[in-house]
Design a protein around this nucleic acid. Structure first.
Lengths: 195, 195
DNA sequence: TCAGTTCTGAACATAATGTTCATGTTCTGA
DNA sequence: TCAGAACATGAACATTATGTTCAGAACTGA
């Protein structure tokens, strides 16, 4: 059975809108971007915008969801290609930092100062989701002290979020591999039961 | 030398505004509250509002700052009163959870779903600040592996934030002492250098 | 080809923001 | 106690953004 592919016009429109948003965010941060600007840049009618998305925030959420899927996919590929054994846990984190580094202009504009409260909220949620996926798989054998799995996921996800934001708001001068290693060094001890 | 106390009218106005904001947030979340509603509730003129605060966000930020000071003070008292030795590190965290628990109505409304992106951003920052204060004091003797102190603060602060939000968004059924213990169990291992 | 989708564009109703100013009220210090 | 300074008022106003509507044009897939 073939998956019902969307009308080309739909794909085109949504792509244009996502692209316009990214470009504008890069120029002036998220909050101050207006729906009018987005549709002007995308060259799309106002009514069309609201036919696809409820609001600016909705468009953003849809963009973040795309990102999550992309990261998962990259992780899958990386694992399939064979990686050093100690890098298998939280494998997505490396992809995450790499991706952020590649798109540092957009990334930095997104999380800059006051600008991106909504972005941060979505990003935080995304990271916790990714972390949870991994922590759950380990929940069988090890740990099993009283700490709920969800609490661990929230803690580590939140920590990753903090680290990422900090790294991004600074000048990202720390190399990718180093932030990633730092994350691992901090996160992995939390997985072991209390001593 | 006497500290120049603020004009009573100023104190009164600001207090009314803070109070009105809290009450309204509790009723309908942060985002949807309007400046008009705040000044109606506080019974304060529109011009007056803008004489004190730049915006709704500014008023909120000022409220969070008050909270930070309160927590620091409570921590000081707790430490002075003598506490079990293993609770001295991150002593503010217990106060934090207790405080959140006491004001759970406001707290839950603040961080609920989409509503409070800005609130979360400020809260996150506040927690990292508090954590940093503590981590810095330990930076002398122990650790001193390559991990920057700031990175540790960001990680633990972010983790605490995640935990707090999760606990609050759920029904807060986990008892205060237990969340706090969980936080410690997860955070303290991160302070020890890599093995 | 053509029936069904999707896009357009401009107009419109609604709603919130932040500023201004002349006038009244309240505070503080001496 | 009082005068001058500081603060509060409130209504009007300019500005800016949002989200909806609709009739007709353009495009798509089969």
């Amino acid at each position: 059975m073939t998956v019902r592919r969307a009308d080309r016009r739909i794909q085109r429109t949504q792509q244009l809108l996502h692209g316009a948003l990214m470009a504008l965010v890069q120029e002036k941060g998220f909050e101050s971007v207006t729906v009018q600007e987005i549709i002007d840049r995308a060259n799309v009618g106002r009514a069309t915008f609201y036919a696809h998305f409820d609001s600016k925030d909705d468009l953003l959420a849809s963009g973040i969801e795309r990102l999550r899927v992309t990261l998962k996919e990259r992780q899958r590929q990386a694992l399939a290609a064979g990686v050093p054994d100690d890098a298998r846990l939280f494998a997505f984190s490396h992809e995450l930092f790499v991706h952020a580094n590649e798109h540092r202009a957009v990334f930095r504009a997104m999380i800059g100062k006051r600008s991106g409260a909504v972005v941060q909220q979505l990003l935080h949620k995304m990271l916790v989701d990714l972390v949870r996926d991994e922590v759950k798989q380990l929940a069988s054998a090890p740990a099993a002290d009283g700490t709920p799995v969800e609490a661990i996921a929230q803690f580590i996800g939140g920590g990753l979020f903090g680290l990422l934001i900090w790294w991004g708001n600074g000048k990202m001068r720390m190399p990718v591999d180093e932030v990633d290693a730092t994350f691992r060094r901090l996160a992995i001890p939390s997985l072991k039961p209390a001593d």
